[in-house]
Design a protein around this nucleic acid. Structure first.
Lengths: 337, 337
DNA sequence: GCGGCATTTTGTAGCGCTACAATTTTGTAT
DNA sequence: ATACAAAATTGTAGCGCTACAAAATGCCGC
């Protein structure tokens, strides 16, 4: 690539064609289907492209072909890292079909999810994935195949929905603690939809086993601070508790704080299990046992659903629950008493 | 907005014009400069837009106007959360000028930073921000104003560079520990460019004060595991150490692990100070004293530099260092001995 | 009522690319 | 050598929008 004047107009397909001594159509063909072009011209065109530093204009391509081979992903907040697994899962299934993913966040706290989706639709994405609480109107009249990932509230029945099985995850956590022999168990919940399912799944199994269960923070948030407060309440009101299931890893960290403040040890005095299998859980200092909701698998299935819908937009809606798995680390053990 | 057949062709500006009884030009004008249109027509056009659920095609707009009012941001890895502060800083300065930011990650481990930048350039971004180690060629011939944020290696002298002052941050950490009275200090370093500056700044101050300094992991990585290993080495070889400065918060977490394993307490036996002021540091369980590199301010200045360059592409290159600040929490205290 | 000016509205000509039919070149069997 | 099919290449006509000049309309005072 030769150095060029940064002021210069960016080269077009015509510039390339002229330099390579072929027609613009041929250049276009080299770009999208090199096998249909004789080797001689193909190399001439490629040389010209390199020489000029030519980059096809996506805007023009989009306009002319009315496909972008791109999928829009609307997420809630970049700091909720589960979207990274979702994204990688999607990419792993989409790349081989030539699609790529464009991200937009909903400006947390501003409820800009509709704006985010509109922005992506304005870019002519061929499909849309909503990985945030969809506020109803977002899902109507998008004009492209749309899938909701990881949330289940406010999703109209005609939209594809691929979600983590939070009930199953709660049950998984319960089975683990019950299997270790715990009979007096606390749960740090939260008020969100996912939290409700985790709670329900957990609750069901624990009661079925006849063990004691105390639930804290059912109306509260899901931050570390919330986890701390709920754990304090729990430990002060039910000091006989030997195990705590937190609705997410961050809340589990809050529980650690409350436990430490009371001079107790994990897991010797209290077992703790979290949810999300986040970086936090993987930390060698914390070694938190946690439920992994397998968002990577959600991503793969989201991609599949989207590709199916792109091929056949009349397909009926798809509903799927991805089974979570349990990752046992160092914060759960048999009760000491 | 009326329900529409999802199969239907998306409405164009012509459809809106026909429904509103005006020319396409007028519709375009309403979209970009409503004040120049009489109220009567403006409302007619808006009603037609709502009626049809019309959404302007960004591709067509881009092609016709050759501006996108969008800035591309290439980041290294979505999991390096400092980019979120950078992004928010950029947005705060760009929104009022009508610009928005499009993200692309470099597929960590695959060195796809050039591909990421190319993708953004293909979308006709009006400016480009590289917030990842720029491998030389990325920065040549982009054809649009380009700024490097947060990295300083491999940046040609003619490119804008806005970076955290890691030397200053290291000095800040040193002053804090020295001020508390520590005289036997360890540092967990790493091999990256930022780590080297943090080390240099720290080292300079500590030696100047005549205190003892041991540096570990100068050739190693910057993960929690690396921090753990380096801290183990440090504590075993120099048990007289009373304070540790980790090159980032994650490594500080590793140090916690090593300290705990030796039955020591933070900050009673050992003070620990991290770098980045990440979520980890803010955790109420960890309460890690940390240097905040103020990436939000980097973002603001990146945006300013970009806007200046967009207005006047001939401007000389800009170099800036953003001063970090210290956030004192619970892991640093006077030495006990 | 009309000139003269400001305001509002419209027609035309692309932006850079691709789809597709039409054309040219090449290869193969007779 | 010739006919014919297959492969390679090209010309034309948009995709949906905006810039800009030109035209139409509204508004003012006298």
């Amino acid at each position: 690539m030769t150095a060029r004047n940064p002021q210069a107009r960016r080269p077009t397909i015509y510039d390339v064609a002229k330099l390579a001594g072929v027609s613009p159509s041929l250049v276009s063909l080299v770009l999208q289907n090199p096998d249909r072009v004789s080797e001689k011209r193909r190399e001439a065109v490629r040389a010209a492209i390199a020489e000029l530093g030519y980059r096809p204009s996506r805007a023009a391509t989009t306009l002319a072909s009315s496909r972008t081979k791109s999928i829009g992903l609307v997420i809630d907040d970049y700091r909720n890292l589960w979207f990274v697994d979702l994204l990688r899962g999607m990419e792993s299934a989409l790349t081989e079909h030539g699609y790529h993913v464009t991200l937009a966040d909903s400006r947390p706290g501003e409820n800009r999810i509709k704006e985010a989706a509109d922005g992506l639709l304005a870019m002519h994405v061929d499909g849309l994935v909503i990985a945030a609480e969809p506020g109803g109107t977002v899902l109507t009249g998008t004009g492209v195949p749309t899938v909701v990932a990881g949330w289940r509230n406010g999703v109209p029945p005609n939209v594809d929905l691929i979600t983590n099985d939070d009930d199953g995850g709660g049950a998984l956590a319960a089975d683990h603690l019950l299997g270790l022999g715990h009979t007096r168990i606390g749960h740090l919940s939260g008020s969100g939809g996912a939290a409700a399912h985790r709670r329900a799944g957990f609750d069901g199994r624990v009661r079925q086993a006849g063990a004691g269960l105390w639930i804290a923070g059912e109306e509260g948030g899901t931050s570390e601070e919330d986890g701390y407060a709920s754990a304090c309440w729990l430990l002060d009101h039910y000091p006989e508790t030997t195990a705590i299931f937190a609705a997410n890893d961050t809340m589990a960290l809050g529980a650690f704080g409350a436990i430490k403040a009371r001079g107790l040890a994990v897991p010797a005095d209290i077992s703790v299990i979290g949810y999300d299998n986040s970086t936090l859980a993987k930390s060698r200092y914390l070694e938190l046992t946690s439920v992994d909701n397998r968002s990577d698998l959600v991503g793969v299935d989201v991609a599949k659903a989207l590709l199916e819908r792109i091929q056949d937009p009349t397909k009926g809606p798809k509903r799927e629950l991805i089974k979570p798995s349990l990752v046992v680390r160092g914060t759960t053990a048999r009760p000491s008493a």
